[in-house]
Design a protein around this nucleic acid. Structure first.
Length: 151
DNA sequence: GCCAACGTTGGC
DNA sequence: GCCAACGTTGGC
């Protein structure tokens, strides 16, 4: 069982939106970065645990927990010319982009902020700090457990 | 809104 | 295959 951190802009899709989705479950559309795609396509497994991270917003940081309920399948929004995630180079026969399904587990009582996470030695090796533009980030069980103790 | 970091594109 | 130009991410 693996642990992940997935970034989202809450004005687009927040942990609260996931909580209020049908069956508290949603697909995770719009990943358009190859390394993030590879994590999703090749390594995310059903049952993996995900920290939901809010970016580009007032309160930046970890805001909730979710779980992978469906492993990767083609991201249909890449084929939709009306979608902001449309990619003319992706086809039904050879999909370029993938998504997974996530189910809500918990909305944290407060956001564990990026700022405070940077203060802890226990988290100093987080990929989150090293790969600033990666939207899907593997984390260790120790990092996961430690972050949740901060709530 | 600014801008640094950095991933992607495309000419050569 | 290199690398300059360009576009996007995301913290501040």
């Amino acid at each position: 069982m693996n642990y992940w951190l997935m970034k989202t802009e809450p004005q687009t899709f927040s942990i609260t939106d996931l909580e209020h989705s049908e069956n508290q479950t949603s697909h995770w559309e719009g990943v358009r970065n190859y390394q993030a795609r590879n994590f999703m396509r090749d390594e995310m497994k059903k049952g993996d645990t995900v920290l939901i991270y809010h970016s580009s917003c007032k309160s930046i940081g970890v805001s909730g927990i979710a779980q992978i309920t469906n492993e990767s399948y083609p991201d249909h929004t890449a084929l939709d010319p009306q979608s902001p995630y449309f990619d003319s180079k992706s086809t039904k026969e050879e999909p370029r982009w993938f998504m997974v399904d996530l189910q809500w587990r918990k909305t944290l009582s407060r956001t564990i902020t990026l700022k405070e996470m940077k203060d802890y030695k226990e988290l100093e090796n987080m990929v989150l700090f090293k790969r600033k533009r990666l939207s899907i980030i593997p984390i260790t069980e120790l990092e996961y457990d430690f972050i949740l103790t901060l709530e």
